[in-house]
Design a protein around this nucleic acid. Structure first.
Lengths: 353, 353
DNA sequence: ATCGGGCGCTAACCCGATTTAGCAACGGAC
DNA sequence: GTCCGTTGCTAAATCGGGTTAGCGCCCGAT
């Protein structure tokens, strides 16, 4: 159907030189290997006229490199939350002329093994092992065959793999400070986790770290958390239930919700109770999910920098690929990506009594 | 760092046969080419013991096939809406031992050209050209080098490429019928598009087709659309504004919103006006965006079958790959994937006057 | 004894590039 | 005139498989 691809041999013939010479010129090593200007020009012109493009599969076979990286996740591509992570990785890879293989394991270890194998069969130059939610994962043994980076995940056992994560602790501080700066000192309640560092959903690294940051910032200001309700899952209905229950006992001045979906549930409960955001109650949250700008009033939230996370993972991976010798003893550094604050309408000074 | 991969030569040596023989046995052609049981067993055992896995890059070079398909979209991976499309494609491809290259063009034709080229350089066996929103696209010339399928997109000019699309017309009928079945005959208003077929956002195929279906189903029942408001963009704020304006003039009995984000805005406007869903006003919508089950009352909506769309695209693509000769004269069929109704709480019989 | 034919396997070429080793031609020094 | 060093290029091996053509062997038939 399509005309045969132009190969290096075609270019060489058109330029009247050997394949070797054509290869040398096109790989830029012509100068150092004393190819004459004349020949160089002929090769370049021929390649240009024939619209020659090297067959990457062939190069891959010879050099063992494929200009491809594998992006393996539990459910990142799928989940609508972290699509930007892929986008960041995609663009960073593209900047270097690399393509991305995408694979999903859905948490299945066997599937993960198979997927990593398939990627190695295709000679990927590196791997990004991503998790939808920040959490500690068991690093599969099969991964050691190529440079790799953990994205949004921490290794359960120490490994030489670097990890890229959002700076959740600083995010927690940031959320707390927003309230402090608006003048809040009393009646600050947490919805989703806390008050203790063990009162968190299982496996949620983000919960613990956000909590640490919140308590740190409030503590420095001499402010105490007035109360906290955990949610078994960070979904709107649990945020709604937790807030409704809270309102039965007390009237808060401000809520720190552990994510935007919880905040959405909280909005509904506040609305039911006839309380206005932010006039009666200020709300700050985390993630910057799209709904944060859809609900009314729009929600102030500390954003998960998905795009930057993806980009950073690729950058770190390329540093890893560039590294000469993998040192099995080395413990991978942890790169923290800042979580920016998105200031919107849900915060006001506390109501005068 | 990692020990060298086991190659076919290693297996052959371990089994005490030639590479040819090993290749024949492992590709299953041993029987027809009269390899003895004994040798066959030796080769299989050696391959097993050495954990031999064929190098797909090498196979690709020889056979011109890469067991890989390219998924090129404007912003599908990115956008949180259609991640399931990728998931469906991913799983369907995996079922056949294929991997997915992901690429995004962001609507840039030059980027698209480059991306398709890069994919061809990697010998992809087929391409899926996907669009975030259903729309007519200009099919790039570069695509003809491999079998391809349009996903969620229609070609502007006739092409031999098949297309996979959601069945929006039937979805429109379905939405209308839900209201009819609940007893609604009057006061049905459209938010987002209509009443005329030209009253739609630019380039939106979905709007036109949904509208066709809605008018068809209502028409068959002898019911007239009471009114309609277009929205320049299908976002919550426009749905809110359109509904608020509508409520200034009239009190509707039911709303057909053209997507869930518009419906979310409509909910807010109804709430502001003190109207209850579904007691005062029933609401039906399209897409089954996650918020449809987050807002209260939960929203009845006709779902975009993203997962199925992705799967179907891959299935159609494989049929295309299997096809012997590409017939340039053929006009690609259009495959319509049903949009299922998600019945929730937002519909009730019209209030008794 | 010779020939023909089926059986069981392998040598050798191919895919499209990179890379190593080395060859021919030329010029200058002795 | 010989030797040596440069210059400018190429033959050939290589990556890891798939595939074609055909080789040796044994057996039965002539």
């Amino acid at each position: 159907m399509s005309p045969r691809r132009v190969t290096l041999a075609d270019v060489a013939k058109a330029a009247g030189v050997s394949r070797t010479t054509a290869s040398l010129v096109l790989s830029g090593r012509g100068r150092e290997l004393r190819i004459s200007q004349d020949v160089e020009q002929r090769v370049l012109r021929a390649a240009d006229e024939l619209e020659y493009r090297p067959n990457i599969v062939s190069v891959g076979l010879r050099t063992g490199t494929s200009r491809t990286i594998g992006f393996v996740s539990d459910t990142v591509a799928t989940s609508r939350l972290a699509g930007d992570m892929i986008k960041g990785a995609l663009e960073a890879a593209r900047d270097r002329g690399f393509m991305l293989f995408i694979g999903e394991t859905e948490g299945d270890a066997e599937l993960e093994r198979l997927l990593l194998q398939t990627m190695h069969d295709r000679q990927v130059d590196g791997l990004i092992l991503a998790s939808m939610f920040t959490r500690a994962i068991k690093v599969p043994k099969a991964i050691t065959a190529a440079p790799a980076v953990l994205l949004n995940a921490l290794p359960k056992q120490p490994t030489p793999l670097p990890a890229v994560l959002p700076d959740e602790v600083e995010a927690g501080r940031r959320a707390a400070r927003v309230l402090l700066e608006a003048g809040h000192r009393d009646g600050i309640h947490l919805i989703g986790a806390g008050p203790g560092l063990r009162d968190v959903p299982p496996e949620s690294v983000a919960a613990v770290e956000r909590l640490v940051g919140i308590r740190e910032a409030l503590g420095e200001a001499g402010v105490k958390v007035a109360g906290a309700r955990t949610c078994p899952d960070w979904q709107p209905e649990y945020g709604f239930a937790a807030t409704r229950d809270l309102l039965h006992t007390i009237r808060p001045r401000a809520l720190i919700c552990f994510n935007d979906r919880i905040a959405m549930g909280a909005y509904q409960a506040l609305d039911d109770a006839g309380l206005k955001v932010p006039g009666d109650v200020s709300v700050v949250s985390f993630d910057d999910h799209p709904i944060a700008s859809w609900i009314r009033p729009t929600l102030t939230t500390v954003a998960l920098p998905h795009y930057e996370l993806g980009r950073t993972a690729v950058d770190v991976l390329f540093a890893e690929i560039g590294r000469e010798h993998a040192d099995a003893e080395r413990v991978g550094e942890v790169h923290r990506v800042p979580m920016p604050l998105r200031s919107r309408e849900s915060i006001a000074p506390p109501p005068a009594d």
